[in-house]
Design a protein around this nucleic acid. Structure first.
Length: 600
RNA sequence: GCGCCCUUAGCUCAGUAGGAUAGAGCAACAGCCUUCUAAGCUGUGGGUCGGUGGUUCGAAUCCACCAGGGCGCGCCA
């Protein structure tokens, strides 16, 4: 799509963007030599108070200084020019220099055919055209099935990726498998224990645990199958002749491979059930094995960004066992971090950070303009060093943003559900999905800003009341579909895009249409802010407007959508209903929630 | 001790890229309602946007300091 096609499309679908162009054109008449950076600050935004009209612009105020004229004077001149616009009914200067615009109802109504012919593509933006973004999310240790703690990041990341795609970005969804660290070695030992059990080893768990460096972790039963599979494939060849612990070199890589593969199979299935489908799975272990991590460290070394040094102890709180030690450090302080960060452990292997630098370098090499990591809030302290690393690696050309997800507290029967493996109340993602379903999980996870803690009340997400946004939004869509089904017997609905909508003039109808008009703007703002939860709130408001309109039919039968003896009126109303359904679907699509056709 | 995030109605939370008189749901109060597909509808009360300064024509929003909560703080990921 070229630039003029693009702006034509914007004029057609985003009424606020269109009016902004109108205002800028008028402003160019009033203030001929306005600097572009001032023009960029001109906004046309929806009026908060209906008494102010439909929209307002700050054009006069932001340009007053550059024009060396008082805002009121510029506003008055703008009003003169703007009243000539075919979209505008009235324009008036108000307050400290706003220009309030009241649009002709037709300007809003004309959107309905556009929505109906665009379908769910309505709201697509071109903001991100030409920008490649990588969204990395979930990235759980492959040490067991996914639990609730992983779930929020998965949903937020997935919805954000969808949102960015809708806003025109070229998006890659990625999962980074943290399969290289000590945790995975511990996992392999745990699987090896299940293997020994499977081949009938006489060792007791205690005897085995005493031989494991760091002790036996991951006692979950989910590894039993892995052990049995190993036994089937390798018989007793991974153990000593008397079925004891063989030298780790003989089995550790095999068991690791096998176990990680088994865990990832489970995790992929969990993700699939959650409706998450990532494009790329990157392995930390493969990255290290390929030598990429070492190469990056060498490169940074050559750039003078790595040195051997001793860190100061944390101020005010010196750990008991603190002692000065020389370490391999990355100069992250040169790029805004608080302290330089270690890259090597004392055993010579890389820290997680070192490998993550290599991983992000790899993503930069793949040509992304923006890297987004979805992280748990407990990784907040990690963000500045990663930001520093990306800056150093890309010479500042690649942007990095981290979206932090706060903890989710599961509530049931008014009581918090404790997350404890020992107590057996460890809630897996699969349990949650079975209990409330994918759609309720996804929607609910998006009903809070991701950096706010959230209560997930298992009883409330299934409630059929207005206070449950999942229900309220789905119900609005179901009602739309219900009306359209009912109307199918009276009038055809397939060509509503060409229906005359001039009769839609009541306040609740126009309120709903104005809400629909906000959709492109909402998509764009949410995408740029990396805040997918805004979509959920928009849909809730949209649903409220729709239910309001529906409820009017309760009091007054002539206000119902279907009027058997007024076909033209009916078709106009149905066009509005159909457009509402389209926008709800469009929003649910971003959230990864399946719209329902009926509530049963 | 330091850094990051947070603090908005009784409760749970929004607040659209600094805009006008800060919004919604629940709860409370007062009415209505038995339905084109229903699990409700209308109205009312309720706020020093944690506090104090500052920048600005204009601040819940940006800056500084203070108070309270969460997270993190040399080879865990």
């Amino acid at each position: 799509m070229n630039a003029s096609d693009r702006s034509a499309r914007i004029r057609e679908t985003d009424i606020y963007a269109r009016l902004r162009e109108t205002v800028l054109a008028a402003l160019a008449q009033v203030v001929p030599d306005l600097p572009p950076e001032i023009a960029a600050r001109v906004e046309v935004s929806p009026a908060k108070d209906p008494a102010h009209g439909d929209m307002a612009t700050n054009a006069a105020m932001v340009s007053a200084k550059a024009a060396r004229q008082p805002p009121a004077k510029i506003a008055a001149a703008l009003v003169q020019h703007l009243t000539a616009s075919p979209d505008i009914q009235t324009a008036e200067a108000a307050g400290p220099g706003f220009v309030n615009l009241r649009l002709k109802p037709q300007a809003f109504r004309a959107l309905l055919p556009v929505i109906l012919s665009s379908g769910e593509a309505y709201g697509d933006a071109t903001t991100g055209t030409g920008t490649k973004i990588n969204v990395e999310y979930v990235s759980a240790n492959p040490t067991g099935p996914m639990h609730i703690g992983h779930c929020r990041g998965a949903v937020v990341g997935d919805a954000l990726a969808n949102l960015l795609t809708k806003a025109g970005f070229d998006v890659t969804k990625e999962y980074y498998i943290n399969d290289a660290g000590a945790q995975v070695t511990a996992l392999a030992w745990a699987a090896y224990w299940r293997y020994l059990q499977a081949i009938g080893s006489p060792m007791t768990e205690e005897e085995f645990a005493n031989e494991v460096p760091g002790g036996l972790q991951y006692k979950g039963e989910y590894l039993i199958q892995v052990g049995q599979a190993l036994a089937t494939q390798y018989l007793a060849s991974l153990a000593t002749p008397d079925l004891g612990i063989a030298s780790p070199e003989l089995w550790i890589d095999t068991v690791k491979d096998h176990t990680i593969h088994a865990m990832m199979t489970e995790i992929r299935e969990d993700l699939r059930l959650l409706g998450v489908q990532q494009d790329i799975f990157s392995s930390e272990r493969a990255l290290v094995a390929s030598g990429a991590a070492d190469r990056i460290i060498e490169k940074l070394h050559a750039d003078g960004l790595i040195y051997e040094g001793v860190l100061e102890p944390p101020k005010g709180k010196t750990p008991e066992d603190w002692e000065p030690r020389p370490q391999t450090l990355f100069r992250s302080t040169e790029f805004g971090d608080d302290v330089d960060r270690p890259l090597r452990k004392s055993d010579g292997s890389n820290t997680y950070f070192a490998n993550d630098i290599a991983y992000h370098a790899d993503k930069i090499d793949r040509g992304y303009d923006v890297l987004i990591d979805i992280l748990g809030a407990d990784h907040g302290g990690y963000v500045p060093r990663m930001k520093a690393a990306v800056k150093a690696l890309s010479q500042g050309t690649t942007k990095f943003d981290a979206v932090l997800c706060q903890i989710v507290h599961i509530m049931k029967g008014g009581q918090p559900v404790r997350m404890s493996k020992r107590a057996g109340t460890y809630v897996t993602l699969r349990d949650l999905l079975e209990e409330v379903g994918k759609d309720a999980v996804r929607f609910t996870m998006l009903t809070r800003n991701s950096d706010a803690q959230m209560e997930f009340d298992l009883d409330k997400v299934l409630a059929t009341t207005r206070e449950n946004p999942v229900f309220y939004v789905q119900y609005a869509h179901a009602r739309c579909r219900s009306v359209l089904r009912a109307a199918a017997e009276i009038t055809t609905t397939d060509d509503l895009a060409t229906a005359s909508v001039d009769t839609l003039a009541s306040e609740p109808e126009l309120t709903l249409i104005r809400r629909l008009a906000l959709w492109p703007r909402t998509v764009e703002a949410a995408a740029l802010a990396h805040e997918p939860h805004r979509i959920a709130f928009f849909l809730y408001d949209l649903a409220a407007d729709f239910h309001m309109l529906w409820n009017r039919g309760k009091d007054d039968a002539t206000l119902r959508f279907i009027q058997a003896d007024h076909l033209q009126e009916t078709r106009a109303r149905l066009a509005l209903v159909a457009a509402t359904a389209v926008v709800i679907r469009s929003g649910l699509q971003v959230m990864g929630v399946t719209p329902v056709e009926e509530m049963r």
